[in-house]
Amino acid sequence: MKNKLEAKNVDVFYGKLKALNNINIGITENAVTALIGPSGCGKSTFLRLFNRMNDYIDSFKLNGDIYIDNTNIYDKSVLVDELRKNVGMVFQKPNPFPKSIFDNVAYGLKIQGINDKKFIKKRVEDALMQAALWDEVKDDLDKSALALSGGQQQRVCIARALAVEPSILLMDEPTSALDPIATAKVEKLIYTLKEKYTIIIVTHNMQQAGRISDYTAFFYMGDLIEFDKTDTIFTNPKMERTENYITGRFG
């Protein structure tokens, strides 16, 4: 199994606060990796390192190296816009633009300067299909995305991320605002997307991590406590703190 992403000796500071402490991890290609841990443990900070979202925070400082396909993405030669074409992101709350479904999904292509309407149409259709939404919206592509249900809006956001054909998908609690039916649809989607994408997902839902991920990393107070195959983490974790967390003894 090839590592698609890698963190080496990573420390993250927000001013004087050390948010991550000497993280070393390799993320397998075409697999789903779940990041779990209590609030404030550093898992979202860690996720946002891979598309350099933390760069917007003034007090953010990184020590160590983050690699994607063996390229250090914090190297001065790396163009952040190019990086983000390759690394899509889906957030906790569905955040479609106040535009049509079509324009939402086409948004990333248009800001890249692509004007070929036929090409854009094909990409939008493909992305909506991959997001398991095509059959539900194919006759309403001009309808406002805001008129869709929460679960459909989240899948529009996933389609928007997929339209620019990234190879990595970062998901920050993508189902926490959804009902169980919409959650099941998004989980099913994540499970199928891993054939084509490398997915990292932050989740507070232990059962969700168990259901959809191949690997699980447990973070606690900025430390990576344990990283292993998901079935090992949920049946026989090596570290007592992991066991205490996943069994609800603390956290």
Partner: peptide, 9 residues
């Protein structure tokens, strides 16, 4: 309760 780890065992 969806037990895991030592609880599941």
């Amino acid at each position: 309760h969806a037990p895991v780890a030592v609880d599941l065992r």
